[in-house]
Each structure stands twice: as C-alpha cells, then as structure tokens.
Amino acid sequence: MLLRAQNVSRSFGALLALSGASLDVTEGEIVGLIGPNGAGKSTFFNCVAGDLTPTGGNILFNDVDVTRATPEAHAKLGIGRTFQVPATFVELSILENVMVGAFLRHPDRNDARAAALEVIEFTGLKAVASAPARTLGTPGRKRLEIARVLATQPKLLLLDEALAGLTPSEVQDAIALVRRIHAKGITIVIVEHIMEVILTLAQRVLVFNQGVTIATGTPREVVDNTAVIEAYLGRRHARNAGAHAP
C-alpha cells in the first residue's frame, strides 16, 4: 500500500470540515475524489500533503507515519500536490518556477536546470519557458503547477481541480498529460468536478459529502449510486445519467 489514510479528521474551530475520511491507494492507481463544494476534498489533500495537521486519524505513506510531518518532509518522501488556486511564483520565470521543484532532487544548478527543462518539455511549456510566470493565464498556471511538482519527482501526485476552468480542448490536452504522467509510474489521486474526466481517468472513485465518504467504487458504480446522485450530483446529473443509460 502506497498511501493509507485512516479516519482522517480536521476541524476549523467549530466546523468539522473532515470527519473520518479513509483512503487506501496502491501503487500505480488513479483514484478520483469527487464531492460538492465544501465537501472537504481540499482539506483532505492538505492533510495528506502535510499542509494541515489532522485533528484525528493517521496517515501512512509507504508504511511511514507522516501524520504530523511537515509539507517539505512530505515532498521529500515523494508526495506531491497541486493547489486548487494555483500558487504560482509570479515573480519568477516559468523555468525558474520548475527549477525550484527540481532542486529537491538535484542540488546542483545545472542538473536542476536540465531536469526542469525536461519536465517543461514533457508538460508542453517549452515555448514559454523563459517568460515571467505572471504572464500566464489560469490554464497556463494550472499546467505550470503540475510541471513544478513533477520536477520534485513524486511517487504520489495529488491533483486538486487541476482541470477546472479549462476549455474543452484544453481539458482533452490535460487528460492526455495526466495519462502520460501515470504512464511514468506515478500514482495519482485527482479531485475533479467534470464527471467526464473522472470517468475517463479514474479506476476507482471516492465520493465525499460534508466531510465523510458516502460512496466508493468504480466510476460506473459511483455514477449509478443513488445516494451519490442525490447528495452530490443532484438533478443535473440525474439527467446526464439518463443520457448515458443504455
């Protein structure tokens, strides 16, 4: 088991944003994480990435207890994450952004640069590599967010709505990118609102609502689960599900 999160809880004052979420991820999987806004998905990611200390439960990564480890320790161990709102270093160039990630495994500047350029090529940012990152729009920043974390050579990648706000054709590009990342042997947990993305990418889906897991299964099973349709997807998806029905 690559990741084993057991009963993870997190409260903010009186608000229990996450109450006892569990997730096991085996190496090589793509797991989808869905749920309505405010369900606690980002909070869960923050706990798994060490950005927030859980108020309950524990998290093992490769059998090491990382529940209370710092974010930088998580990165070092191989847990990489993107932020839902891209946290681009706007004062740096795109290449420099990626180099910051690359320095984790390549202390030498030239090595880091070479590694960063490789990732930039891989993620399709080559044409703009030397441009200031502030010139990028949201889609570009989301891509840079992925490039930067890839440069840290993660074993497990947590993607938080990395495809939100993209046009349909950009979404297709991004799906292809996620596939290529997966093909490199990186295990992925992906939070995404667009059902199509989850259906095409994920092998297994977890549904959150109000801080608890309300369903798990294959994307198909989850989509057909009435609890899910009611609690999260509502009428809109009931319609879509009808369209998918044979």
Binding site: P71, K76, F83, F103, R109, R148
Partner: peptide, 26 residues
Amino acid sequence: QRSRMGYYWRAIRAGERPARSLGVPV
C-alpha cells in the same frame, strides 16, 4: 543567487506555502 539557495529564497518570498509543498525547508 544562482544556486539552490537563491532559488529557494525567491520561492519563499513569492509564497511560503507553495515553496514548502515543493520541499523547500522554509
């Protein structure tokens, strides 16, 4: 400035949270 130290410093200046997520011991 042109070594890892300088890049990490500038990353910290630009944002501690993302810097830490990339493994920078802030």
